[in-house]
Design a protein around this nucleic acid. Structure first.
Lengths: 297, 297
DNA sequence: AAAATGCTTTGCAAAAATGCAGAACTGGGA
DNA sequence: TCCCAGTTCTGCATTTTTGCAAAGCATTTT
């Protein structure tokens, strides 16, 4: 292998499945990516991608090459880890994928504390309305509402949290008090867009025995903002309520759903001290943050 | 890590311990090596080498980086292996280190056959008057006369061979026939340079009860050429005799030393199909070659 | 059907990396 | 003592690589 760096370009392209996509993550022009891939193919004497205006797709030889390129990525990561954090403090970059409720109401303050305490640390929050694809390296760490199914992934349960019905004071003021489940009939419901529920755990409404939402979003944060605007009643994360003072719990004792956050990471990353440290502190901080936020509402 | 290829330069320099040495194996200028190392150090924010006109020596950070760079090398090798040998035939480059007796009288014909049968294959024979350093990647495979002591090395016994006393017809013709060990007294002896014996297994002479050599070389092949020129009597590889028709065995039944060749390779290379294949064919060919050559003399 | 959006490919100018040659330096041997 | 062989370092010409912009294509949207 004459130039190990071409493996980096190959890997990015295999993941992005497109020259321009690879160029974005590599911070270079698509033309450069194309030329370096061409060089790699020439040197290996094998065509690695089938090229089309729709993108680049791996050939058989390409998929054979993939694991080796991933191993090289591991090594490169290990390299920066090896020289980086010899002394105290965490340093480096880690990207955390999370469902948007968590990303909006928990991670900002937690990550802020973490980077304040570790000047060399760089955290990125990737809020995605779907389960984040760790295998494609969209993120180093992912927070999920269920254990991952398969793949070479490690998962650990972080914390439990609760969902509760809530609505704005303004909305409730103009209507009859809600004292039992039956009083919910006729109310506007805020919830998920049914066919965009990417994880069965998010199907709150049917579990709570509620009908489909009248006002819906794929984003938990948007739903909260609906509620704040008085759009109706909806199930939201209890830990989101303190940041929305105009919201009141509805039937807090009757309707309570319990969920858990899981932290999942790639099995190959087990050795990476930085990730292990961030993961453990993240879990710890999330536990206390949830406990505190849920208590004060 | 912005450029994985810099790890390649780093690794070569760490092994060569000198910019110019690294430049030679990398086939590029020393200045280039220096500049790329400087870039790598800058990007990692750590100084990797202490520079002196005597060469480059690893710093602490450098030795921490070393295993990661080696892992990257593994991955790069796996990459070329992955795409290279999908179909029939072996292809790629493998360098075989061997003591010079083996390198001269066995490997040439064996390797010639191997490359003839596998057009994509490229074999290099590294004849060294010492034990070849696999850890520094001087060779992919090594043939040795003893099992390696330590390190992450795998070894397998290939074949037994024999050493016998021999001298040229011309030399013997002018002297009294040698019928017993005692008749050797007064003869000129050809052997190894005592203080250049790099492996105890090569200390034939003392084992055979012979005194120090009058004419010596560190090379078994040179010793054979001494014998062919009628310089005296010496212990040589039985398999070398067929290629030297003017040599005759001396006391063939009384003095016979038995030795073995071992094939040793790096433990990290266990996965590399090409190396495994070459190793096994090499062992097989050497066995039959030795048997054949020793028989016809 | 036509426009528009995403992609790849290509040509060209700018930027970066490389090789070369020479200078400066060090250590070892006659 | 001087010299020699080995190294690293530096400036410059050349080659290579890169980014940009335009062009070409397929697919989807209007």
């Amino acid at each position: 292998m004459q130039n190990w760096d071409d493996l980096r370009i190959f890997l990015a392209t295999a993941r992005a499945e497109t020259l321009s996509g690879a160029g974005r993550v590599l911070r270079c022009d698509a033309a450069t990516v194309a030329r370096r891939l061409a060089r790699l193919e020439e040197r290996l004497g094998q065509t690695l991608f089938v090229k089309s205006p729709g993108g680049y797709a791996l050939t058989d030889a390409g998929v054979r090459l993939l694991p080796a390129a991933e191993a090289a990525e591991q090594a490169a990561q290990a390299a920066v880890d090896a020289v980086g954090d010899a002394e105290e403090g965490l340093s480096g970059q880690v990207r955390i994928g999370a469902p948007d409720g968590c990303a909006n109401y928990l991670l900002p303050q937690i990550c802020a504390r973490l980077v304040r305490d570790n000047p060399g640390l760089e955290l990125q929050i990737l809020a995605v309305p779907r389960v984040v694809n760790l295998s494609k390296r969209e993120a180093d760490l992912a927070i999920s509402v269920s254990r991952p199914s398969g793949g070479r992934l490690l998962s650990q349960k972080i914390a439990e949290y609760h969902l509760t019905l809530a609505a704005s004071e303004a909305y409730l003021a103009g209507r009859a008090p809600i004292l039992s489940r039956d009083d919910l009939i006729g109310h506007l419901l805020v919830g998920y867009i049914p066919d965009m529920i990417f994880d069965a755990e998010l199907d709150y409404m049917s579990e709570a025995g509620l009908e489909a939402a009248h006002v819906a979003s794929n984003s938990a944060a948007v739903q909260v903002n609906f509620l704040r605007q008085g759009a109706g009643i909806g199930l939201t994360h209890a830990f989101a309520l303190p940041s929305a003072p105009e919201l009141r719990r509805v039937l807090p004792d009757e309707i309570v759903l319990k969920r858990s956050f899981y932290l999942v990471r790639h099995a190959d990353d087990k050795q990476r001290r930085l990730l292990s440290e961030v993961a453990s502190r993240l879990a710890q901080e999330m536990r206390s943050e949830i406990a505190q936020l849920e208590a004060c509402s």
